[in-house]
């Protein structure tokens, strides 16, 4: 079957994708690296000059960078924590037989399909508005002062919003994994007198370990680049309270037109993402051999 002829044919079939992906990623990336060594501002054309690592030094010693890095880590970490813990619990709950299981599952995964700009504006206005929002109504209902969510607790609000978007993803993946758990093993453990808590610790959690890792890695990739949610709700503010690395690079490039500095920031973002990516690629690679 796999003659030399078919192998050559296969190479020709794969080649276009490889070439296109190469052009799409490697070439712009090299350009970003090149720009990052230049003094290059769109408002000051004709004055481009090689400055070596100056942009990096400038970017990495800028207090804004550390604020943005801190915000990025807090955002990613908190959302991961909420979605993984919530996702595991929800997956176990929704895996039990109950009335209307199908519809309840659909309701839980729905937020994942809502486009980011819609989620962001619905939360910002309909829910979190301090005067007419639904949360303000709930606050008044229990007799506390309504909270100005995006004004006073901007980063927390973004975390809640993003966690709401990604909880369905974690639940969906983990639900698939829980579903593949062998019922007989659960039964055997129960007959041996395992309570629900030890059942969870010794049977369910180890079975989910792999899916949880996948959820963490994939979410991290996407969460490091959260942009639209910040863009339409807070615009990075108040101050720099909700500026993450992605938004910082965007504002440096397209609002301040500092191509050199923004490129250096972009490369820093790439390095951060790659640290995560190495683990994910390795895990998926293992799966490929199996």
């Amino acid at each position: 079957m796999a003659t030399k002829q078919t192998k050559t044919l296969a190479t020709f079939m794969v080649a276009p994708s490889v070439i296109m992906l190469f052009l799409w990623m490697i070439v712009p990336l090299c350009m970003t690296i090149y720009f990052s060594t230049l003094r290059y501002n769109l408002l000051d054309p004709g004055n481009e000059a090689f400055v070596g690592l100056e942009n990096y030094i400038y970017f990495l010693t800028d207090p804004d960078f550390f604020t943005a890095l801190g915000n990025t880590l807090i955002l990613v970490g908190s959302v991961l924590f909420i979605t993984v813990v919530g996702g595991v619990l929800l997956a176990i709950l929704l895996d039990q037989p109950f009335f209307g299981q199908g519809i309840a599952r659909l309701m839980v995964i729905a937020p994942f399909f809502v486009m980011p700009t819609v989620s962001a504006l619905i939360w910002k206005n309909l829910l979190m508005n301090p005067v007419s929002g639904f949360f303000a109504y709930l606050a008044k209902l229990v007799g506390v002062e309504p909270i100005d969510w995006l004004g006073d607790h901007a980063l927390l609000s973004i975390i809640i919003l993003v966690a709401w978007q990604w909880l369905p993803f974690a639940t969906l993946i983990l639900l698939t994994a829980v579903g593949s758990l062998d019922g007989e093993r659960k039964e055997a453990a129960e007959m041996d007198g395992a309570g629900p808590i030890s059942l969870f610790y010794y049977i369910i959690l180890p079975h989910l370990a792999r899916a949880i890792t996948v959820v963490i890695l994939i979410e991290t990739i996407f969460l490091l680049s959260i942009f639209a949610e910040i863009f339409v709700t807070t615009g990075g503010g108040p101050g720099l309270d909700t500026t993450n690395i992605a938004f910082l690079v965007y504002s440096q490039a397209l609002l301040q037109f500092d191509i050199g500095g923004a490129s250096a920031g972009g490369i820093v973002a790439v390095i951060l993402a790659n640290i995560v990516a190495i683990f994910l690629v390795r895990m998926v690679g293992k799966n490929l051999d199996a």
Binding site: L21, L29, T32, F35, L224, F227, V284
Partner: peptide
């Protein structure tokens, strides 16, 4: 090849936004 393709997906868009 497959893993390399996957790794291109890991690139944050801001890394190539400017070019």
């Amino acid at each position: 090849t497959l893993l390399w393709m996957l790794s291109t997906k890991m690139m944050p868009p801001v890394g190539v936004l400017i070019p």
